[in-house]
C-alpha cells in the first residue's frame, strides 16, 4: 500500500480506460475511420514516425516551446525584479500587465501573423508572451505577501537593497515563481500548438491540420495524445520542484 498504490491505481484505471476504448471502437458503434480503436491510433503513431517525420516535427515544436518559454521566463523575472526594486516602475507596469494577463495568447496569433509574418519569430513571440505575463504577475503579488520584517532584518545585517532582492526576496518567491511556471508550462505547449496550426509549415500543430485535410482521424488522435502527454510531463516537472522546495523548508 502507500506509495505503490499511488502509482498502481492510476495505471490500472488507465488500462481499463484504454481497454473500454478498444472494445467500444471494435464493437462497430461507429465507422472505424471516424472512431478508430486505440491500437489503430498507436500503429498510426508508429507509422507517422517514418512517413511524416513525427520525431523531427516533435523536436521542432519542443524547441519552439523551450525557446519561447525560456525567453518569456527571463523577461518575466527581469520585469518582476525591476518592479520590486523600483516602485515607480511597478506602479506604471502593474495595471498594464494585469490587463494584458486576461488576453489569451492565441488571440495574438492573427495580429502577429500580420506584424511579424509567418516565420519562427511568430511561435517564439506568442509563447514568450504567455510565459512572461503570469510570472511577472505572480512575482509582484508574491512580493507583497512576504513579511516586511524579514527584509528589514536583512538590511540591519548589512545587506543593501540589491542583495536583499537576490538573497532574500527572490529565493522566497520561489514558490510563487514555480506555481506561475507550472501554469505557463502547459500553456506554452498549447499556445505553440495553435500558432503552428494557424501559421506554420512544421511542428505538431502543422501535422494536425495536415491530418485533418486528409481525414486521418487516427493521426489526429495520436497527435492530441502526444500533446497532452508533453503538457502533463512539463507541468509535473515544475510541480515536483515546487513541492520539493516547500518540503525542504518545512512548509508542507
Amino acid at each position: 500500500m502507500g506509495a505503490s498504490s499511488k502509482i498502481v491505481k492510476p495505471i490500472l484505471f488507465l488500462c481499463l480506460l484504454i481497454l473500454s476504448w478498444e472494445i467500444l471502437a471494435r464493437s462497430g458503434i461507429a465507422p472505424s475511420y471516424l472512431f478508430p480503436s486505440f491500437s489503430t491510433v498507436f500503429v498510426e503513431l508508429i507509422e507517422a514516425i517514418y512517413r511524416d517525420q513525427l520525431a523531427t516535427n516533435y523536436a521542432i515544436t519542443m524547441i519552439r516551446v523551450l525557446a519561447g518559454f525560456g525567453a518569456g521566463t527571463a523577461l518575466g523575472l527581469f520585469m518582476g525584479s525591476i518592479s520590486i526594486l523600483v516602485s515607480k516602475f511597478r506602479e506604471f507596469l502593474y495595471p498594464i500587465i494585469s490587463f494584458l494577463s486576461v488576453i489569451p495568447a492565441v488571440a495574438l496569433v492573427p495580429l502577429l501573423m500580420i506584424w511579424v509574418g509567418m516565420n519562427e519569430a511568430l511561435p517564439l513571440l506568442t509563447v514568450m508572451f504567455c510565459s512572461s505575463i503570469p510570472l511577472f504577475y505572480n512575482i509582484v503579488s508574491g512580493a507583497r505577501q512576504i513579511d516586511k520584517e524579514i527584509l528589514e532584518v536583512a538590511r540591519t545585517l548589512g545587506a543593501d537593497r540589491k542583495r536583499v532582492l537576490r538573497d532574500i526576496l527572490l529565493p522566497q518567491l520561489a514558490p510563487s515563481i514555480l506555481s506561475a511556471l507550472k501554469l505557463e508550462a502547459g500553456m506554452a505547449w498549447r499556445t505553440c500548438f495553435v500558432a503552428e496550426m494557424l501559421a506554420m509549415g512544421s511542428g505538431l500543430g502543422y501535422m494536425i491540420i495536415d491530418a485533418e485535410s486528409t481525414l486521418n482521424v487516427a493521426l489526429i488522435m495520436a497527435l492530441i495524445l502526444i500533446l497532452s502527454l508533453s503538457c502533463y510531463a512539463f507541468q509535473t516537472l515544475f510541480e515536483v520542484i515546487e513541492l520539493r522546495i516547500l518540503r525542504r523548508w518545512g512548509a508542507r
Partner: peptide, 13 residues
C-alpha cells in the same frame, strides 16, 4: 545594530 523583530523574521529558505 542587531535587530530581533517581534515575529523574529528568520529567513525561511
Amino acid at each position: 545594530v542587531g535587530y530581533v523583530p517581534q515575529n523574529l523574521a528568520l529567513f525561511p529558505h
